[in-house]
Design a protein around this nucleic acid. Structure first.
Lengths: 186, 186
DNA sequence: CAGATCATGTAACTGGTTACATGATTCA
DNA sequence: TGAATCATGTAACCAGTTACATGATCTG
């Protein structure tokens, strides 16, 4: 998947400028892109070239011109085709697993410290996630069903971090159990 | 993180050729890389240039020469530094969430079909994951702790897909509840 | 005879990132 | 006075993918 449909999605909600899209993408919890200029602005040029969006330029006094993009019928059709296309499996990439795979080179205390750091990292990420969702920028709430869908999307993010956190805690507990008996020997 | 440490990790276990590493990476459940030639072979050249590994060339009759790479002390130190470095948060990228966010444009049956396809996709992925783990290529089992660490790493993958699956099922159930009452009206 | 396995390597491309550049306005 | 907000855009780079190229040997 590319950022194209994330942008088309927002434009299917309402007309927006590149600057707005950039912020919406950067602030979103479930969209995996940083929302950097290069990506957003060049994608908009491409979508316009392909006639999936139209532009309207508003010249403003003492501020750069604002280009408001709107989705076209062709754009709406393209978005719809993508939405009903076969979903991909979620991509899990967790570099900590790779660290852990070779972490037997560490001493007990070092390993506990490493897992502790990961636990803390995930805790922090979960807080950020919840906070981001709490004050999510205005999102479409056109129908009860749409509100529900967005709720479930956000729920997915929270649950993923929660599952990760409980795994990390279990890992730490088990590692402590593995190392303690020998220390407690008479 | 880059593939460098995944390669150094395997080499910290035992000497291997690029061809072996490529397969180990491709077959691994928790390493997120495809294990394509370009990446593996060029990384090995780089690691060698940086003196993190040494090479030994075995000329074989009627087969291309085999280059066996071994980790150096410098390589082991570099790997260790990375292992104890602050872990990153796991990266979740799920394009289905983006599809779902704009799926209110679909009709009840279409939406149910979409979520059903996702559920099936995750089910299949979970099966593949379990199967891959069941016949994982020989992995280091140097200590009981290392065996435990690898078990937990694999567990992490399985649990992530299980969590995803239960989320998808709940989503589908709730969507059915949302749409049925109106249909059941007299 | 086609296709997998062994074993190396390169070319072209996509997708994404950081950082730079401009320039007015508002706020602490 | 320095930083943030508004608003556009480009350059250079890194990571990763597919596909190509070679060529013997083994298996169905």
């Amino acid at each position: 998947m590319s950022i194209d449909f994330a942008i088309l999605g927002f434009l299917s909600w309402r007309p927006l400028a590149g600057y707005d899209l950039k912020k919406l993408i950067a602030d979103s919890e479930f969209l995996p892109w940083s929302g950097n200029n290069n990506q957003v602005y060049t994608t908009l040029v491409k979508l316009h070239r392909d006639e999936l969006v139209t532009v309207e330029v508003q010249h403003q006094e003492s501020l750069p011109a604002r280009k408001t993009y709107s989705i076209t019928e062709k754009g709406r059709a393209s978005l719809r085709t993508w939405i009903i296309s076969a979903p991909d499996t979620p991509q899990l990439r967790n570099s900590f697993l790779c660290q852990l795979a070779w972490a037997d080179a560490l001493q007990t205390a070092e390993l506990d410290d490493l897992v502790g750091k990961y636990e803390h990292e995930v805790e922090m990420r979960l807080l950020v996630c919840r906070e981001k969702i709490r004050r999510e920028p205005p999102a479409p709430n056109r129908t009860a069903r749409e509100t529900f869908l967005w709720k479930m999307v956000h729920d997915n993010c929270v649950r993923a971090y929660e599952a990760e956190l409980s795994w990390a805690r279990e890992l730490r507990r088990e590692l402590a159990r593995l190392s303690k008996p020998s220390e407690a020997a008479p």
